[in-house]
Structure formats: C-alpha cells, structure tokens
Deep mutational scan, measured.
Amino acid sequence: NQASVVANQLIPISTALTLVMMRSEVVTPVGIPAEDIPRLVSMTVNRAVPLGTTLMPDMVKGYA
C-alpha cells in the first residue's frame, strides 16, 4: 500500500504548501504519492483543502 499526501490542517485556496501542512498516510483513494512531498513545497492549491483530505493531482497548480 502506497502512502499518499494528506492535509495536516485546513489549507486555504491559493495557499503555498509547506512541509507542516502535509503528512503521509495510506488512504483510499490513493492521491499524490508521499514521496512527492518535497516537490509540492511552494506549489499552491487551487481550492480549499480541509484537514484530513487526500491531496489529488488536480488540487495543486502545476503538479499534474
């Protein structure tokens, strides 16, 4: 089972991601792979991401 990136807090729309905002967790459905966390830092989300939500590729500008 692959770990995915999960929001560690509410991430408001257009917020630049930082390490403290994300954690890795094995979830269903599978989202962005946890090993991509370093790549996600400073990318922005294009929607509000509630606490505990799995980050999907279409939620992060420039990721997909």
Rank of each mutant, 00 (worst) to 15 (best):
L40Q: 01
V27R: 13
S14R: 13
G52Q: 01
M22E: 01
N8T: 12
V30G: 14
I32T: 01
L10R: 11
E35T: 12
A7K: 01
L40A: 00
A34F: 05
P57T: 06
L40C: 03
P57N: 06
R39T: 15
G62R: 06
A16V: 14
P29L: 04
P50T: 12
L51K: 15
V27S: 05
V26K: 11
N46F: 07
P38D: 10
Y63D: 03
S42H: 12
A64C: 08
P12S: 09
V41K: 04
V6K: 02
L51Q: 14
P57M: 07
D36G: 06
I32H: 02
A3M: 14
L55K: 01
A3Y: 11
L55V: 07
Q9N: 07
V20C: 05
L51H: 14
I13L: 12
N46G: 07
M43E: 04
I32S: 01
I32Q: 01
V6M: 04
V30E: 15
T44Y: 14
R47W: 09
T28F: 14
Y63P: 04
P33A: 12
E25T: 07
M56I: 08
A16R: 10
V5D: 03
I13N: 13
L19I: 08
R47F: 08
V41M: 06
V5Q: 01
I13C: 06
M56R: 08
A64D: 11
Q2P: 11
A48I: 12
G52R: 03
T15R: 07
M21C: 04
S14Y: 15
L17S: 00
A7F: 03
P50Y: 07
G52L: 04
N46D: 09
T28C: 08
L17D: 00
T44Q: 11
A3C: 07
E25V: 10
V27M: 05
S24Q: 10
I11C: 03
Q9V: 09
V5A: 09
A64F: 09
V20K: 15
Y63G: 03
G62T: 06
A34I: 07
V30M: 15
I32N: 01
K61H: 15
Q2K: 14
L10W: 13
V6I: 12
T54S: 04
A16L: 09
P29K: 05
K61C: 07
A3N: 09
T15F: 05
V45P: 02
V5H: 01
V26W: 08
V49F: 03
L40M: 07
D58L: 07
P38T: 15
Q9F: 10
T54W: 03
M21Y: 05
M59V: 08
S14D: 14
M22P: 00
V45H: 01
I37A: 07
I11H: 01
P50F: 10
A7D: 01
Y63L: 06
V6H: 01
R47D: 07
N8R: 11
V45Q: 01
M43L: 14
A7E: 00
A34Q: 06
P29I: 05
P29S: 04
E25I: 07
I11Q: 00
A64M: 15
V41R: 05
M22H: 01
I13G: 11
M56H: 07
R23K: 14
M59W: 12
M59G: 02
R23N: 07
T15S: 13
T44N: 07
P33Y: 07
M56E: 07
M56L: 11
I11F: 03
M43F: 14
L55P: 00
R39V: 10
L10T: 14
R39N: 12
R23H: 05
I37M: 10
N46H: 09
R39E: 12
P29V: 05
Q2N: 10
L19P: 10
M56F: 14
V60F: 05
T44H: 11
A34T: 08
V20M: 13
G62I: 04
A7R: 01
R23Y: 05
M21P: 01
Y63S: 04
L17H: 00
